[in-house]
């Protein structure tokens, strides 16, 4: 599985991680990717080539454009992360449930 090494070196770059995060929101063309990153299209294309080589994105041909999307494996990682975010928030609020239970125990008498 040589692609794992390639995936890690592709992910070492913050711009490429940001591009992947953007693709997590849906398919995008080079032009659409270049805009938020304030980068030239050739610079974005170079990053895309690395990501494609690492198997993290897939490109298709549509006329003169080559829109990119995340490879299914990369999507699995992101699904995992969305669960992680929800869990992190849910964990905060579960902790808050306990804080509130303690709080109401100590302030119960001044509330009616």
């Amino acid at each position: 599985m040589q692609s794992l090494d390639a995936a890690f070196s592709a992910l070492a770059d913050p711009t490429r991680r940001a591009i992947l995060a953007r693709l997590a929101m849906g398919e995008a063309t080079v032009m659409e990717l270049a805009a938020p990153f304030e980068m030239s299209q050739p610079a974005v294309s170079r990053h895309l080539k690395v990501l494609e080589g690492a198997g993290l994105i897939i490109r298709r041909v549509e006329g003169t454009k080559r829109p990119c999307r995340l490879a299914p494996d990369a999507i699995a990682e992101i699904d995992q992360w969305l669960n992680w975010l929800r869990e992190a928030m849910a964990r905060n609020y579960d902790r808050l449930d306990q804080v509130l239970a303690d709080l109401e125990k100590t302030t119960g008498d001044d509330e009616q």
């Binding site: 991680r17 940001a18 997590a24 992101i78 995992q80 992360w81 975010l85």
Partner: peptide, 17 residues
């Protein structure tokens, strides 16, 4: 908003990797 969600996602991907 998209960037905020994407930033969070990037952080999370970091954790996964």
């Amino acid at each position: 908003r998209k960037a905020m969600l994407a930033t969070g996602m990037e952080e999370g991907m970091e954790a996964s990797y």
